[in-house]
């Protein structure tokens, strides 16, 4: 049975339509496997081979992958939530109620989005600490570390802008407190807050601004930097597996 299933799958992979989409076609050879990676616009960001050592859990704790996983969950649930949300006062809050009481699985969607957001922030911090303690920021990977810091900031801003969207007391005052911190910047503080909120107070303008930031600008920026982050892994010599062991690496580290 399993055998025949594999055969069917191979037949499918060998079909004209499949091959027009995925150039690699069926096959188990290393060439084929390399082609799968190389001929895919998303996967080609990665190198076709990786050191065996990096597969060990203790090396990375898979924290980067998990962070990306949380991001994927957030994108999917976020897009679904956008279908039920109006970024206006007080509709935003009644949309929360509708999500809770009449949208099928609405509570689940919101919960998953919320908890995944917290998880992503936590994972990003953990990723940063792990990378630091393993020394994976060392040349030639120093610029990828900087991109990582940018991604950390983007994650925080994404979470912070999303915090306002339910327009409940929790959201309103958390953002008020946050924006007051921004206004402490010398000279420019109030201008920064004005720019941030689209006004002097947290109101409907701020909600709209945060909505656009949360759903358009920041996710696009995050996707861009994630792509660069992944691509740089390949360009900087693959996943860092520990102390350099090859000549090439030793040369690079010198």
């Amino acid at each position: 049975m399993a055998r025949s299933l594999t055969t069917y799958l191979d037949d499918l992979r060998d079909s004209r339509v499949w091959r027009s989409i995925f150039r690699s076609g069926p096959g188990q050879s290393n060439l084929h496997r390399a082609l799968v990676v190389q001929s895919n616009v998303f996967l080609h960001l990665f190198s076709v081979k990786a050191r065996k050592r990096v597969l060990d859990f203790s090396v990375t704790w898979y924290l980067g992958a998990l962070t990306f996983g949380a991001f994927l969950i957030l994108v999917i649930t976020g897009v679904l939530l956008m279908l039920y949300y109006h970024p206006s006062v007080p509709l935003a809050y009644s949309d929360m109620k509708d999500l809770e009481f009449v949208v099928s699985s609405g509570v689940f969607l919101r919960n998953l989005h919320r908890w995944s957001a917290h998880a992503m922030v936590l994972l990003v911090f953990a990723h940063l600490a792990k990378v630091f303690y393993r020394g994976a920021y060392r040349p030639p990977r120093e610029f990828n570390w900087v991109i990582g810091v940018v991604l950390l900031l983007l994650t925080l801003f994404l979470s912070y802008t999303g915090y306002l969207l339910p327009w409940d007391q929790l959201a309103f005052w958390a953002v008020t407190v946050g924006s007051n911190i921004a206004s402490a910047v010398p000279l420019l503080g109030h201008h920064i807050r004005f720019l941030m909120l689209g006004g002097n107070l947290v109101n409907a303008n701020a909600l709209l601004r945060f909505y656009v930031l949360h759903c358009m600008i920041l996710p696009l920026a995050a996707i861009l930097f994630i792509a660069i982050h992944f691509w740089r892994i390949r360009k900087d010599g693959g996943l860092y597996a520990g102390a350099p062991t090859t000549t090439a690496e030793k040369e690079a580290e010198r």
Partner: peptide
């Protein structure tokens, strides 16, 4: 060079 695996 150490052992490598195919990414895919």
């Amino acid at each position: 060079d150490e052992d490598q695996v195919m990414t895919h």
